[in-house]
Design a protein around this nucleic acid. Sequence first.
DNA 1: GTAGATTGCTTAAACGTTTTCGTCAATAGT
DNA 2: ACTATTGACGAAAACGTTTAAGCAATCTAC
Lengths: 335, 335
Amino acid sequence: MITIKDISKKCGVSPATVSKALNGYDDISPETAALVRRTAKELNYMPNAAARLLKTNRSHNIGVLFIDDSMSGLTHEYFSHILNSVKEEAEANGYDITFISKNIGKQKMSFLQHCRYRNCDGVVIANVDFQNPEVLELVNSEYPVVTIDFSYDNASSVNSDNQEGSYTLASYIADRGHRKIALIHGERTLVTQKRISGFKIAMEERGIVIPPEYIAEATYHDVESVRKATAAMLDLDDPPTAIMFPDDYAFMGGRTEIIERGLNIPGDVSACGYDGVNLAKILDPKLTTWEQNTDKLGRIAVDKLIDKIENPDTAIPEYIVVKGKMFKGETVKQI
Amino acid sequence: MITIKDISKKCGVSPATVSKALNGYDDISPETAALVRRTAKELNYMPNAAARLLKTNRSHNIGVLFIDDSMSGLTHEYFSHILNSVKEEAEANGYDITFISKNIGKQKMSFLQHCRYRNCDGVVIANVDFQNPEVLELVNSEYPVVTIDFSYDNASSVNSDNQEGSYTLASYIADRGHRKIALIHGERTLVTQKRISGFKIAMEERGIVIPPEYIAEATYHDVESVRKATAAMLDLDDPPTAIMFPDDYAFMGGRTEIIERGLNIPGDVSACGYDGVNLAKILDPKLTTWEQNTDKLGRIAVDKLIDKIENPDTAIPEYIVVKGKMFKGETVKQI
DNA sequence: GTAGATTGCTTAAACGTTTTCGTCAATAGT
DNA sequence: ACTATTGACGAAAACGTTTAAGCAATCTAC
């Protein structure tokens, strides 16, 4: 481990001078600065993040709260894409990321405690139960926070355009002649509410009346629950001609049910998903879906967080909507 | 931020005593220890990891090298599962994880430098170009290292049983009557070599002669390249009756090609994948595949790494094989 | 030629821990 | 009653940085 002292000795200057030279202070002569920088390179010097943190109180580390027991965080394609872009944007700005969890070793600690333990500079929160007391504790703490797909009023949030997406998909289906359109949605979160409302607006605008049994609840990312909901839908006396699914992955459950009944997509039943993950595009036929801009969601979240970290006073909470786009696919038939 | 000093004042003892009480030293009276611990709880004390690290030289942070430009690390289902189990096992042992990358902010730094900057205690390496000079630099450094699916001789490695898996799949297909079995494999890595060799052994054991055009190279996780390889296979004068694909995800490319030619899986062409990711199980028909034990792979890697970290002298390099298991699925027809 | 400003550097304290060594009182041993 | 031992604690240094304050030398302006 080579330190500032080694450089200072080799250059014949004080450690303070080295520090200042390396950090670009302007009370160091150009020659000395150059010398210091040169020897730093030579010796392969790397500053010690921990020591620096101890003095500056800045870790250049952002916490990521991504865990939800129900939907396995990292292995969920939508969230793993967001995580990926969060990571990349953080790195591009000189930050590392740390997963915030409740148990670290034998110690039980709250999310907030974990953040403090690791001296995070701020936290990105996504894919959690936003009403969880521990999450709230964190949100109401001294920590800069940015949320994804949920909005508290004292923190910036980055939101996918769920209402717009759902509205567009529903409109697309209706405009291809469907009148009997069903919506299988996920658990009743804010995201779900927006999607339901987008759906309803599209229907109302067109004077289409949707019977209550055409709207059913299942679980996001849960193939089985969606399969059941699909079965129930198809068992109706007057089954829908098109079904909107909670997400692309869960669609696979509905798909199986439909196919195993000897029905064809989109010949007999039209369908669409949500998310626009890779899966949708490699299916045959390609799944009609709404492609969320995961890249932008993650990036903006990090940008806003860093802004808040580095300008705690001037940065004000924003509510940001990131637009997705339609992926037409091939699973909605014109009738 | 409440520190050891706050506790020491409140308890009327020295900071040293507090530290010792909290860390369970035995030269502190039970009463004092209890008092200290009680007030620590009261004040919601959290040790400062950076300060501790500075003294102890242990960060309780393990680096994870997972990036590969070609196969987008985090969003690759197989690797995201491994990452997930790495993360969980690390947390269970009191470690956080840090992604090691080359660019952190404007600074270009090597993997090794990044590790030093963040004071990692050790590194898990997977899914990278294992011949990359920077990776080698890290492996040959002072850092404890564990690799997944590749083995250097100075570090422990955890390996999926690629030869066994491929052998078992090939045997299964052959034993269901197939004689014309093709293998589309990925880039020529160690993993690929093992799979090819497992395949060949199974064939030889059964006296099945595989013409060279039945073995083709494509790219892991790349739907398009696999689709092309599949097309070439089907265009042969004497096309195979069964095709083994590089992985479950890439299989989707072959699947599309087969279906679009009006052929049926497994009616006309039998198929199997590799990995056993969720996708395989929600397809219809379910994809016959080899299920790698991602959970165990990640856990053991972390366990071995921590062992090496905490017992640098006694821990010796091991070559560990983690067994997967057959997922029979429905895509291999009996003929 | 002198007061004041500027330049370029150093000193030293601080961040929050851990840990070695020392101290001091109480107890045990003879 | 004296030494030896033990038990419980504290003082202080150290880890690698940053940064406020200080200081000597040089420069500027009159």
